[in-house]
Amino acid sequence: MDERRVVNDDAGVASFFSKVYTKMGLGLGLTGLLSYLLAVPFQQQYLTFIGQHQILAWIFLFLPFIMTFMVSGRRAQQNTSFGNLMFYLFSASFAFQISLVLMVYPTINIFAAFVVTAVIFVSMSLVGRFGHKDLSKAGSIAYTALWGVIVMSLVNLFIASSGLQWLINYAILAIFIVMTAFDTQKLKQVYLTAGGTGDGLIAENALVTQGALMLYLDFLNLFLVILRIFGGVSRD
Rank of each mutant, 00 (worst) to 15 (best):
V71I: 10
N156E: 02
G128M: 09
M67N: 01
I55R: 10
S91T: 06
I150W: 02
N109Y: 03
A171Q: 11
T193D: 10
R5T: 10
D199V: 04
F114M: 03
N221A: 07
V151G: 06
T197S: 12
T107R: 11
Q54P: 02
L61K: 13
M214P: 00
L28S: 01
A113V: 03
F90N: 09
L47Y: 13
S234Q: 13
D134I: 11
T209H: 01
F60L: 06
L213V: 06
L215M: 14
L135R: 01
I177Y: 07
I50F: 05
I159V: 14
I141Y: 15
S161Y: 10
L28N: 04
F219Q: 03
M179H: 09
G232W: 13
I59M: 05
A174I: 10
H53S: 11
L126S: 08
F82H: 06
Q165T: 12
G148L: 11
F16T: 09
I120H: 01
L61E: 11
L56G: 07
V104E: 09
L224Q: 10
F94L: 13
T117D: 02
Q44M: 14
L220K: 08
G196N: 00
V13N: 05
Q77L: 05
T31C: 15
L126V: 14
F219S: 01
L28A: 05
G139E: 12
G51T: 10
L167P: 07
S153V: 02
Q45V: 09
V115L: 15
S18L: 10
I168S: 12
I226C: 11
I202P: 00
